[in-house]
């Protein structure tokens, strides 16, 4: 017998893969498997297996499989397959370019609208460094961060959102001494280049670990790759257009 799968058209999310499982049980199960670095196709297989079982037995997922967290640990323990947690150089370059390009594009747009040169202050550069550190921690310790967001949402919101944001604002407010002054156009061009680097890295390495059911097409569609690649530049374009409109 070959490890072949019955054909299933297209990509399906976990709800469509397992419609007979209670949503809360399914979400908890998927979350725990993600926390244990189980690959998306293994998660999809386990979801469909559980779904077909409850559909035939008439049991609830809780009755058939017990606590979703414990069952997820059992499933993870029965396979050696894991997502490689290491970050590629390409991903790091893409994220750094994305953060720097975003801040640069916003700063150059504001300066261009005000008709003033871009002034980079000590506070701005410190804020940029802090934003990169927070982004780096979230990338390197993503499992820990996700666990904290789920279990202690308020603490995570403070730690990853409110506190760094306040710190960046504070740094910009305190460190107003300019260290660099340049034309908005130059910074704008530089930011576009950085955002293009960000788009290119995510196009080449789209970080694809979707939950796939048996027989789902493993290749990411061109549209999905384009969406992943253009998410940051697209968001920045919307922000800059908004700034221009409200000016």
């Amino acid at each position: 017998m070959n490890d072949t799968h019955a054909p299933r058209p297209g990509h399906m999310d976990d709800e469509r893969l397992a419609p007979h499982l209670e949503a809360a049980w399914r979400d908890e199960f998927v979350f725990e498997l993600r926390m244990l670095d189980v690959p998306g196709d293994v998660i999809g297989d386990a979801l469909v297996t559980a779904d077909t079982h409850v559909a035939e037995s008439g049991e609830t997922a809780q009755e058939a499989f017990g606590d979703p967290k414990i069952y997820a640990q059992e499933i993870a323990g029965s396979t050696s397959r894991r997502v490689d947690p290491r970050l590629s150089v390409r991903t790091v370059v893409g994220v750094v370019a994305g953060v720097a390009g975003t801040l640069g594009a916003i700063a150059s747009t504001l300066a261009w609208l005000d008709g003033t040169p871009v002034r980079l202050s000590v506070g701005m550069l410190s804020g940029l460094a802090l934003a990169l550190v927070v982004a780096g921690v979230l990338l390197v310790r993503s499992t820990w961060a996700l666990r904290l967001m789920k279990d202690r949402t308020v603490l995570a919101a403070l730690l990853f959102g409110a506190v760094p944001a306040a710190a960046v604002v504070g740094l910009i407010a305190i460190g107003r001494d300019p260290v660099l002054e340049g034309s908005p156009r130059l910074l704008g061009v530089l930011s576009v280049v950085l955002l293009a680097v960000n788009a290119l890295t995510f196009w080449l390495d789209p970080d694809d670990d979707r939950i796939l059911g048996p027989g789902d097409d493993r290749r990411l569609s061109r549209t999905a790759r384009l969406g992943a690649a253009l998410s940051t530049p697209g968001t920045v374009a919307v922000i800059c257009a908004f700034l221009w409109l409200v000016n």
Partner: peptide, 22 residues
């Protein structure tokens, strides 16, 4: 229960004693 059976089947598959087909 399924919660007992499928992890066992998964271990058998991992050990190369069982193969699967959808």
């Amino acid at each position: 229960k399924g919660g007992t059976l499928y992890p066992l089947l998964g271990r058998l598959e991992e050990a190369g004693r069982v193969e699967v087909e959808w």
